[in-house]
């Protein structure tokens, strides 16, 4: 589904360019779960932004179902993000003046679909609440629901459990696992020990390179 061939991303900041991703190759298919681990600054978020078509690689080749998205128009990539890619941000990034239902609808869901998605993440009674009226764990679950709007082929989660307690972190990881089992390719970036379980592949990044060979968790 998504293939990276020796992809690099260099940020030209300051006097010395920063190589956030360095000749990284990987492949993620439907139903795959990939945990990207590494310390802060290792390139996890950059990798997710590249996979989410938000950041142009400065080297290498990226393919999405055989197409090269960076040779297409911005509107085409926006359409792919809207229709095929779901994004869960660290902290949720829900719009504070919208209810949880309306936030889920921002992802492209209808009102009924938004209700159904919030039901799936256990927030059926919180549909009309604003983000400030629910807990951090509930906000993050609502963010997962928003990412699941439109049944995306790819689900990208950037530190989705970073600010959650163990119980809420577990609930969010279960949702990601459900999405993977449902057929989505799920990529989870974390600097902690988040473990979604199941048949997930794990890689460790350091300075934009994979330093730990691919392994499959049991």
């Amino acid at each position: 589904m998504i293939e990276l061939h020796a992809v690099s991303r260099v940020f030209a900041t300051g006097t010395e360019p920063v190589r956030a991703i360095d000749a990284l190759s990987l492949r993620v298919d439907a139903g795959d779960g990939l945990v990207v681990r590494g310390p802060s600054g290792s390139g996890k978020s950059t990798l997710l932004h590249i996979l989410g078509l938000m950041l142009h690689p400065t080297g290498g080749v990226m393919e999405l179902d055989g197409e090269r998205p960076w040779s297409r128009t911005p509107a085409w990539r926006a359409g792919v993000r809207r229709g095929r890619i779901g994004f869960v941000f660290q902290g949720g990034h829900l719009l504070p003046w919208l209810t949880l239902r309306d936030n889920v609808m921002l992802g492209g869901a209808t009102a009924d679909e938004a209700h159904e998605l919030l039901d799936r993440v256990g927030l059926q009674t919180r549909c009309g609440h604003k983000p400030s009226q629910v807990s951090g764990g509930e906000r993050q679950r609502a963010a997962v629901a928003r990412a699941l709007a439109g049944a995306p082929d790819v689900l990208l989660a950037d530190e989705p459990t970073g600010t959650l307690d163990a119980e809420n972190a577990c609930a969010v990881l279960d949702l990601l696992e459900d999405a993977r089992v449902g057929g989505a390719a799920v990529v989870l970036a974390t600097h902690g020990a988040a473990d979604p379980g199941g048949n997930w592949t794990s890689i460790k990044l350091d300075h934009g390179c994979i330093v730990t060979p691919l392994e499959t968790q049991s």
């Binding site: 989410g52 938000m54 911005p74 509107a75 926006a78 809207r82 941000f89 990034h93 719009l95 492209g108």
Partner: peptide
């Protein structure tokens, strides 16, 4: 940030 979220969710410019 709101603009960034909307763009990430696939909203066009």
């Amino acid at each position: 940030t709101e603009c960034g979220v909307l763009r990430a969710l696939g909203w066009t410019r």
